[in-house]
Design a protein around this nucleic acid. Sequence first.
DNA 1: CTTTATTCCGTACGATGTACGAGAATAGGG
DNA 2: CCCTATTCTCGTACATCGTACGGAATAAAG
Lengths: 238, 238
Amino acid sequence: MPHDERPGAAGVDPEQLWLRPTEPRRGRRPSFSREGIIAAAVTMADAEGIEAVTMRRVAAQVGAGVMSLYSYAPDKETLLELMVDHVSGELTVTDPLGGDWRTDLKTIAHLQRAHMLRHPWLPAALSTRRVPGPNTLAFLEHALAALRPTGLDGAAKLEVFAQLTAFVAGHVAHEITQTEAARSPDRVAAEARYLAAVAADGRHPELAEVLSAPGRPLTAEATFARFLGRLIDGLDAD
Amino acid sequence: MPHDERPGAAGVDPEQLWLRPTEPRRGRRPSFSREGIIAAAVTMADAEGIEAVTMRRVAAQVGAGVMSLYSYAPDKETLLELMVDHVSGELTVTDPLGGDWRTDLKTIAHLQRAHMLRHPWLPAALSTRRVPGPNTLAFLEHALAALRPTGLDGAAKLEVFAQLTAFVAGHVAHEITQTEAARSPDRVAAEARYLAAVAADGRHPELAEVLSAPGRPLTAEATFARFLGRLIDGLDAD
DNA sequence: CTTTATTCCGTACGATGTACGAGAATAGGG
DNA sequence: CCCTATTCTCGTACATCGTACGGAATAAAG
């Protein structure tokens, strides 16, 4: 399902990118598939981080020449958009939609969190401007259905969904850096020593107290559920 | 105030980076200053985006050779950390701290939002792991002081601050992409046509309804204040 | 067959981060 | 005052990146 981009406007044209049937029945038959390329890129990003995804490595992974990728995506940024929508396909299958919209919304948010933890490059990728692909739109449709009982108007529903997603992305980004940093003990120790030194300078009494009486550490899951509850239970209280 | 990194552990050593008095009184006098280099990088990032900040351009801006920068920061990632803490200096001056901790927390969040809008590269930079520098710690100290009346333990206070920051970062990242996208009308039109086409396929009834009855658009400021209120007013309800 | 459209990909270019090491400048010890 | 250790400066060089270009290969249309 190769690609052809008109030089109309700068960047990605959503109609050209997402609304393409299977027209081209002339010329050489494609040796690869967009799906396969995207899947390879996603696998690499999941395993080694998004910065490990280079056009050369993806091409090598699928057994193509580097420049062949450009028949399937006009540039790397577009490939990233395709990756985002590709993994969003994992979200579309969950459809129960119980009775209470607050519960449904929490379920959706927990789904998003699990999804982003599975693909740690997602939070950063979501903060860049993107045009929603079919899988993303399917999930949006689901979320809008969950919001139907609220009686909010269109703009408000979209805003709730966007804010919820932004909240989850922000939380997961923080959660990921925490757990990643915790995996190098010497780094943790160095940071602890550094903070202790700062707290000992007398100009950070609150920090000193926090460090001396930390309290019980909280699990990321519990913290997420707690703050999510704050956010959602407060909704619709206009 | 040049720099010297011991090859101890991988990455950035906070003690080496932040706890450096002004020891070296031997050898050639520095021709530039860390402050000046960071300020130049920040100015460039604010004006042209973080991807416009390259070692070559920063060096040219301050009148140095490229490799001279490496006497002031061991690598580009560290320079980014320095930039983050540098701009955090703008936050430390705001100290009133009124009576109600919820109000104080909202003030802090609004400060953070304005700060991130002034430096649009901040939300993305914050989602990467960093060691808090002196300015960041000063602001944290302020936030912890605001949280004192809550009686939360240390870990909980840190968690509230982290979640609040993550929320603001997520919101601002979304807000920035919205306003940036709105500045290219043809892109907006193309996306509208695309969404209309998707909505017309009959499989996205909720989306179709949202597009047909959008309601009044909300200002980013109002949306932020609303969701922030939800989040903070719900706190401490344990 | 010729034409036209499409994919494949080797080569090449400009840009980037930064390793290396030679030179220049400064301070302390004799 | 020179010597030596130390520190900063920066030209050169290299690996790696995204991708422009163009020709060869392939397949359908005329």
